[in-house]
Computed example of a mutant assay.
Amino acid sequence: MQHMNPYINFNGNTEEAFNFYKSVFGGEFAFVQRFKDVKDQPGCSNVPEQDMNKIMHIALPIGKSGMLMATDVLTSMGQPEVSGNNISIALSPDSKAEADKVFSGLSAGGQVIVPMSDMFWGAYFGMFIDKFGIQWMLNFDQKVNG
Rank of each mutant, 00 (worst) to 15 (best):
N13Q: 07
H57S: 06
G66P: 11
F35Q: 01
V24R: 09
D94K: 13
A90S: 13
A59K: 12
A70R: 02
V82R: 06
I62F: 11
L60Y: 02
F29W: 05
G43S: 09
F25V: 10
K22Y: 13
N19D: 10
E49M: 15
L60K: 08
N85C: 10
S76N: 15
G63H: 04
A97Y: 01
A17I: 08
P48R: 06
S83K: 15
I58V: 15
A70Q: 01
K54S: 06
G26C: 02
K101T: 10
I87F: 12
V73A: 14
S45H: 10
V32K: 11
P48M: 08
A70E: 12
G78A: 09
D72C: 03
E98I: 03
K54E: 03
K22Q: 15
T14H: 02
S92L: 07
Q41I: 07
F20G: 10
I58D: 08
G43Y: 04
M77D: 04
S88K: 03
K64A: 15
P93Y: 00
F31R: 15
S23M: 03
F29P: 05
M52A: 13
V82I: 15
A30R: 11
S76D: 14
V102P: 00
M77W: 01
F20T: 08
I62T: 07
P80C: 07
A59V: 11
S45A: 13
G78E: 06
I62M: 07
I58R: 00
D51I: 00
K54H: 02
L68I: 14
